[in-house]
Amino acid sequence: MLHTTDIATQPVWTILENVMDPEVPVLSVLDLGIVRHVSVNGNEVEVVITPTYTGCPAMDTIKASIQMELLAAGYSPVSVKQVLSPAWTTDWMSEEGKRKLKEYGIAPPNPKQQVCHQHLFVVDEAVQCPHCQSWHTRRISEFGSTACKALYQCNDCKEPFDYFKCH
């Protein structure tokens, strides 16, 4: 969708497919939708990324991993630039990424219109249990183990699980 690929940038995109999010290691930076632009000029590469959350501590690691992988592939100099606008949204996560998340045991983000508003004490967003596929689940906390996740529990299989919350 965002990937304007051509002969020169194609190998870079392929390398980025294998740079993983350190906190959700089944997702590549492309699955997450945080790579906004790639430009190649001879051996020189610039990758533009955007953070998922303002305080996401994984961004520095991701930046370094992208740099390492591209340097290892022979590109030099490699610069990784961070932009804030437009702000990242879970809409940019790839369908492939959502599938991988679910397989990994994390409920993927629902389509955006369901939350992200200010109303108090709303009925918990319907989230499907990634273990037994039941929709009979409840929210334990809207803040989870990382900034991007909320804590849920399945009322049927009783397993707790993470929900990659809509953003």
Partner: peptide, 17 residues
């Protein structure tokens, strides 16, 4: 403006919570 737009999404959660 860019920092604010980004942070606003998170502040919405803080305010609701």
């Amino acid at each position: 403006a860019a920092i604010a737009a980004k942070a606003l999404k998170e502040v919405t959660y803080h305010l609701r919570w």
